[in-house]
Write a protein that binds this DNA or RNA. Structure first.
Lengths: 214, 214
DNA sequence: ATCAATATCCCTGAAAACAGGGGTCTTTGT
DNA sequence: ACAAAGACCCCTGTTTTCAGGGATATTGAT
């Protein structure tokens, strides 16, 4: 009996690569491929009883990315394993995935052999993370300890986002229906919390955290 | 007689994808694959007389990226065609490639058929760019006209870099052995030139231009 | 030789940011 | 039930930014 796999990736050529690797193995049956997580989420909803063993997914995809997909799968269908194959090694993404019980993570520049090993390991019930990914995860956890878990409230995120979008204090106050003084307080707290010196530091933080895109 | 191709990409799995696509065609002989442009540049140097028809390359790679590789190939071996296959659609990268006579550009999310068409077109002596890439290129040229080529002097780059690194005006003045007033003038000019509103805008520009990494 | 671009410096006044305090009220967890 | 955390507001005084005008000296290209 073959394992049923689903592959999600918005890069056609990469998909072809994965397919050619997996088709040369006999144990895997590719149920479905898709360009984004939304298709898969829908599919799982419509076919609740189908036996699906593993979903292999990229991270950056239009509409619904791999982070969101993994979250949904683990919340609704925790018996389905998930393996992320991505070229991104953003520590926060990795952290998010691991917190949401992803079963494995292999970078896209990994050897074919490692990918197959990851799949086998995961289907065997264990987790598989590439050395590189483990290192990034640990490094991140370690340095987070030093920074003493800087966590912003939603309101603070609102304010820092607007600051990074080049709005003045008064404009932000108007937008949020708050007093100018309140915004000044938030800015002051943000600068202290994030250990930066001024607007430039706040802006960089906002970019790093993807509060703004530009 | 087969065409001799070289493929450069640091993502093993993607390489496998390309190989499986191209091996199923009979016209192509894959001479060599590599993980970065440096290997290829070396290879071309050592084997100056080998008949090479086309180099297919990614853009982001360690050591020597696709931009640099294309430049070198076109400068030293202009008879070798180059095709970029990348998921990046940064207008400046595309612009750079086209200025340096790249023969084609196909995004990684293109269909297999489009890739093959691109290769055939290029080997036939014409250029091939995906609709998407052409659009980005034209859009960029068009909007550049509007923005009237914002070009910063080296000194301005120095100043904006330090600003984005969170230094105060006085600190920047000290570092550059200039008066505080001079830095203020530079900042004023930068804000005008770049059509931004404040430090946040300057910081974002500096990041976009890679003046700072963080 | 000359002209444009660049680099440098200065001033004023208004607006904004910043440091460092103060506070109330509501929500949330235990 | 009560403490902690968050959201919200205010004040004073200093520093910095920003818009708007200047100016001069050097350099590079035509």
């Amino acid at each position: 009996m073959k394992y049923n796999l689903i592959i999600v990736d918005d890069h056609k050529m990469f998909l072809d690569g994965l397919l050619s690797i997996l088709n040369s193995e006999n144990d895997y049956n590719i149920l479905l491929t898709a360009k984004n997580g939304k298709h898969i989420a829908k599919y799982l909803e419509i076919n609740p009883d189908e036996k699906i063993d593993l979903i292999i997914t990229d991270i950056t995809m239009p509409e619904m990315d791999g982070i969101a997909l993994n979250k949904i799968v683990k919340e609704r269908k925790s018996n389905i394993k998930t393996l992320v194959v991505s070229m991104h090694n953003n520590p926060d993404m990795i952290d998010n995935l691991i917190e949401h019980d992803v079963d494995g993570y292999v970078p896209k520049n990994a050897e074919k052999e490692e990918l197959l090993k990851a799949i086998q390991t995961i289907l065997g019930g264990e987790k598989y993370f590439s050395r590189e990914i483990k290192d990034i995860y640990m490094e991140n956890k370690f340095s987070k300890k030093k920074n003493e878990e800087v966590k912003l409230t939603q309101r603070e995120i609102d304010v820092i986002t607007l600051i990074a979008q080049e709005f003045t204090t008064q404009e932000i106050a108007d937008k949020l229906f708050l007093s100018k003084h309140t915004i000044e307080s938030y800015r002051k707290n943000l600068i202290a919390k994030l250990s930066v010196r001024n607007l430039a530091g706040l802006t960089k933080y906002a970019m790093k955290m993807n509060y703004i895109q530009e």
